[in-house]
């Protein structure tokens, strides 16, 4: 994706440079050809495949019920996050989310007071945490590591500090850590 955009950017810059450096070459292309080529043909070649890819990817990420995906409960409150792991003996963590790498999880997101928004920029888009309603976000962390999340909906005086950490481990390590938390007295 990044390299594709680099290629397109380079293409446009080369065309722009040519209009300055070889005006005669640029004059051979009529204004209508510039408009149709750059404004219609180029986007028509680039954008529909991206849209199709995004639609297929989005369809595969839908949290459809009954697929045996690990469930994690996310409860936002002023000004912190609580994460529950009902599939792993009901352990909970505060401002620290454990995730397995390379497999999808369903985050069931809600709030106890006002509207917050769950956001881990490196893993997924934002999803609102709304009192009285549960929104489901399916996400998959492709590699292990530490990521950072932040409340993304202004929720009061402590909003800016409503951060949390995401620890992504290999699935075996994830189970060991979360099961260990549940076993603690």
């Amino acid at each position: 994706m990044f390299f594709g955009s680099l290629v397109l950017f380079a293409l446009v810059m080369v065309a722009l440079a040519l209009t300055f450096l070889c005006p005669n070459w640029a004059r051979r292309v009529s204004p209508a050809q510039w408009i149709i080529g750059g404004g219609l043909v180029l986007p028509a070649l680039v954008l529909p495949p991206l849209v199709a890819w995004a639609l297929v990817a989005g369809e595969r990420l839908l949290p459809l019920p009954g697929q045996g995906v690990t469930r994690i409960e996310v409860v936002a409150e002023q000004f912190g996050w609580q994460f529950g792991y009902p599939d792993q003996g009901g352990a909970t963590t505060v401002n620290l989310l454990h995730l397995p790498a390379g497999e999808p999880v369903d985050l069931h997101i809600t709030s106890t007071d006002v509207i917050h928004s769950f956001w881990v920029p490196q893993l997924a888009g934002k999803l609102d945490a709304i009192p009285g309603k549960t929104n489901v976000l399916r996400l998959q962390a492709d590699r292990t590591g530490t990521f950072y999340g932040q409340c993304a909906e202004f929720c009061g005086i402590g909003h800016a500090f409503m951060r949390f950490e995401v620890e992504v481990r290999e699935p075996d390590d994830f189970l060991r850590v979360v099961d260990g938390l549940a076993a603690e007295p």
Binding site: P48, L55, E59, P63, P65, V136
Partner: peptide
């Protein structure tokens, strides 16, 4: 056609 057409193919609700 381009922006709304795919709606008819996608899963409407989860």
């Amino acid at each position: 056609a381009f922006t709304y057409g795919p709606l008819l193919l996608l899963t409407p609700c989860v």
